[in-house]
Nucleic acid binder design. Sequence first.
DNA 1: TCAATAGTGTCTCTTAGACAATATTGA
DNA 2: TCAATATTGTCTAAGAGACACTATTGA
Lengths: 220, 220
Amino acid sequence: MSATKLLYPLVSVDVALFSVDQDVLRVLLVKRSVEPEFKKWALPGAVLKPDVDVDLEATALRALKDKISVDVPHLEQVSVFSGTTRDPRGWSLAVLFYALLPRDQINAVIKSKVEAVEWAEARDVKRRLAFDHAEQLECALSALVAKVEGFALPLHLVGARFTLTELQRVCEAVLGRGLDKSVFRRRLKGVEDLVEVEDEVVRGAQRPAQVWRKREGFEF
Amino acid sequence: MSATKLLYPLVSVDVALFSVDQDVLRVLLVKRSVEPEFKKWALPGAVLKPDVDVDLEATALRALKDKISVDVPHLEQVSVFSGTTRDPRGWSLAVLFYALLPRDQINAVIKSKVEAVEWAEARDVKRRLAFDHAEQLECALSALVAKVEGFALPLHLVGARFTLTELQRVCEAVLGRGLDKSVFRRRLKGVEDLVEVEDEVVRGAQRPAQVWRKREGFEF
DNA sequence: TCAATAGTGTCTCTTAGACAATATTGA
DNA sequence: TCAATATTGTCTAAGAGACACTATTGA
């Protein structure tokens, strides 16, 4: 039991998969079906399999493969958590990623009979999380917020077609605070990743809203 | 040979130790004394020893322990490099840190007979580096520059006592560009980490310069 | 016409950047 | 006095934030 523990660390990957639903930023949690931390809620994760994964991104993708039925866009490495105390099995090392799922694909989550899954409010997770996943979630959330605070548009979180107001709502959900409409749109002026969809509008009981799409090859 | 390779990744830590000398940002390189990449220049590194290191920061400190004779202040995790191709020994995972050494301690580097060491210009390393260390160095440098571009003062790079002009030169060395004196000093107004040392000045063939020190418990 | 939301304009205040002016020393 | 660098001040332009205004629809 202890020889292996001491010679090799347990290397794994955890992923905070974010999406926005009903103007609320959510993160995907799974209920653990094995020991340790059996039946506790946790971020999706996977133990590194050197014979299967070409690198840690591959491990991260594998961690999500049986959780959602679509390809995960935008995987970003956040940080590493390591040491002797974070996992009861001994010396462990977890590389944390975050991933973004468009709001129109939030139902692509696979409902398994083995593992319960849940879209929890990212800022107000009711569950007590396994291992150091509460800290990891906080860390991933900070990284995402920092990026959006720096004017990056989280285009991977909106659907294929969207209005500027929808985009603003998504940013507000990520940031956890309201934004001024005028200031927000002023910023969008020079953004190359936004493309106007001509002759397409969303109608309601008000002035029609212009529809936009993402430029091919946008990054974030 | 291959069973171990496939079951466990090689986990190591590399450290980019930066310092400023003669207004030039430098990074510590060591000449490898063992295979693989024998005799090539590289960032200081260490293989994780789970029975010795409590976490990866401990591994990073150990990687520098026989390189410099003083305590390393400010160790910061940057990124992880992983995969099957970056190390000839097989599946490997390297966690990159950067560290800062005050300019007045740049001679605390231990000259070993086994390993040659060198303070190379961080932006213009003449050597071809081992493994993916060129990429790692670029990554660490970017992280450091980003932090200083965001107005953080790299106080760990200056000596115990310094003038504001010296501090400016250090920032310029890190950023790789000149800064406006007036703008720079305007920013310093509200910085709590800077403490004026009363009745101490540096004299030369000009108006004396006020001497400053770092506040106890400063972070970066 | 009105409610509702889309989209734009305007004012102020802060700050970065450029550059000038002043201060204080040793030689 | 002069050269050299420290330290401070001033002007301008760009941008953020707050908020008001106009536009266009369905009911």
